[in-house]
Write a protein that binds this DNA or RNA. Sequence first.
DNA 1: AAGCCCATGTAATGAGTTACATGATTCG
DNA 2: CGAATCATGTAACTCATTACATGGGCTT
Lengths: 208, 208
Amino acid sequence: MTAYTNPRSRTLPESTYAVLGLIDERPASGYDLASFADRALGYFWPVSRTLAYRELSRLEGLGWLEATNVTQLRYPDKRVWSITEAGRRAVAGWLSTPPEGGSTFRSAFLLKFMFAIRMQPHDLSRLLTDYRESLDTTVRDLAAIIDLLEDRPEARMGRLAALHGLRSAEARLGWLAEVEQELDLGPPEPAEGRPDSGGDAAARDRTA
Amino acid sequence: MTAYTNPRSRTLPESTYAVLGLIDERPASGYDLASFADRALGYFWPVSRTLAYRELSRLEGLGWLEATNVTQLRYPDKRVWSITEAGRRAVAGWLSTPPEGGSTFRSAFLLKFMFAIRMQPHDLSRLLTDYRESLDTTVRDLAAIIDLLEDRPEARMGRLAALHGLRSAEARLGWLAEVEQELDLGPPEPAEGRPDSGGDAAARDRTA
DNA sequence: AAGCCCATGTAATGAGTTACATGATTCG
DNA sequence: CGAATCATGTAACTCATTACATGGGCTT
């Protein structure tokens, strides 16, 4: 309806090509696509379910995708999308040009961290602890994904993309250790044995 | 006008607190604030000039900021903003709660990289080269900032935030080397001495 | 004369998220 | 019997960006 079907007037958002590229790989329903996109691109290019549907109809309007109705017995009928010849050309064109626009990084953690001098010590260490926990989770998740894809050569790029995230997260854990040392907050283990802040570089080595 | 002046109905965006926190540090005009925000938060929480103005008037509506008219001789008059008592309380409240929402990472590079199998070899190496260049620039810029802030204790958090970016960028350069090795694209030096892909770990060491 | 710095905003646009709406089937 | 899965969408919202508008003073 309110679709922006004219590719000449302005450049399409990258998410449009993300969806197009995924359908090029394997035809799918909107529902399928959304969950597949979440697994494949979720870490560096989230495409929500709603957005997936919107991009699909935009791509239909552009003539880059077409739908086939599939009736199902135990599940609702669905529209399975596949790429057209024009769509294939569009993907090729997109892949042959350098990424424009895109790439943003926003960190609510760093934003708050910038004002750390005005934070209560307790809140600061909480902030850092929470950050470490989220990084630990990321490391675990990505390591598992990499492990899973190790022996699947067709998923090579996915594995390498996950590795990109893993290396970044590891570097940030290293940064956290540096920061905690400089701010003389020992690594948070307030259980027993009061941290005598023995300047240990051992904490840097967490490449598990 | 169409401002959302009621903090009880829904949580305010983090950018609102970003502006509030900066004004808390030093009163400034909208114009000043925008350029200061760009320097201080630009790498992890961009606040455009237009957005800065919008947030300032929102904060005025909330009673968290107030303006003083300042007439100038050689420059246009301006409104200098400073924080109110209520504003100070709002900052304190914000700082004592864990970051909600925020933190997004979107990489147009990784998105394209995921479809690398369908790329022409030339376009792929171009993609990687461009990425390396942007990372190199980031590393240089952040290293310079860190160097500049080394002997300014009041800018400690800024220095550490920059270090966060530096460590991430370094890790990504390391990742790039791994990837180029695996995809058997030697590091791009097509000048002379054809790269015999001597598996060198030397390229990993770019902590200059 | 061109162009940047200071200064403040409005208007238009859009990308993306969250909530809402509906409904059959299957599994614990 | 409730929850999850499969399936498709609409509606509302708003954050954020880009373009537009204006204008004096200073620098090259």
